[in-house]
Write a protein that binds this DNA or RNA. Structure first.
Lengths: 118, 118
DNA sequence: ATTTGCAGCTATGCAAGTGTAT
DNA sequence: AATACACTTGCATAGCTGCAA
């Protein structure tokens, strides 16, 4: 098996599994992350699988925010201004957040897609 | 009106409605399940429907964090200390967050969560 | 659309304390 | 008494956001 994430994530994950272990005394395969834990969003619905089981609050929250914002940006055809006002934050703040979340907005004049960066 | 989900969802919903009621002193129809967008969590999976379509980032994030934390707390049998170390934050910080999110932990003696049940 | 500096608010870690149950 | 948690609070600092440019 090849670890899909970076070192920091591996470290965090291991620590959490160990904590679990202290309670279950046995670490099973199911407790290991099978994927990033990011589900797809369809029909205004967001699904985060695995994230609950293997991610810290901060990580899970970031996964959620990515999904949420990507969904909204797509909903507004890549228009950041409209997206910002809809999600209730300043354009500049949204820009900074997208940047910190690693969301790339391939928008230009008629552009309308936003995707994950990795 | 017919409840569209399962029993657990209903329970979670009611709990949240009550929590909100304690702060708003008035429970309105809009605060009812049909549009809270809170899904249930099973098999380490969280589903937030509607939240994407009708809530601001902050609101959606809070809904997510509630689900996430309730799930984790239940996973650890209501033990806040273990939950805190697992989700990667200080016990005190977790307490404050739970309070701000309106999550009630009717715990006493050994501890067993009061929100969800398996 | 995107970035940045700045001020104010929020969240969190750390430490210390209180209360309860085993 | 001793241990283990739950819960709270003061404080300093790190992070996030609005506003203006």
């Amino acid at each position: 098996m090849v670890w899909p994430g970076n070192i920091r994530q591996l470290k965090n994950m291991m620590e959490r599994v160990l904590i679990m272990g202290s309670q279950n005394a046995l670490i099973e395969t199911e407790e290991l992350p099978s994927n990033t834990g990011v589900g797809d969003s369809k029909d205004g619905q967001i699904v985060l699988s695995g994230s609950v089981a293997t991610h810290s609050l901060r990580e899970a929250r970031e996964l959620f925010e990515r999904e949420y914002l990507l969904t909204q940006i797509n909903r507004f055809g890549g228009n950041i201004s409209r997206t910002a006002s809809f999600v209730g934050m300043e354009r500049s703040a949204l820009h900074r957040k997208l940047k910190s979340l690693g969301v790339v907005t391939s928008n230009r004049s008629g552009g309308r897609v936003a995707s994950l960066d990795e």
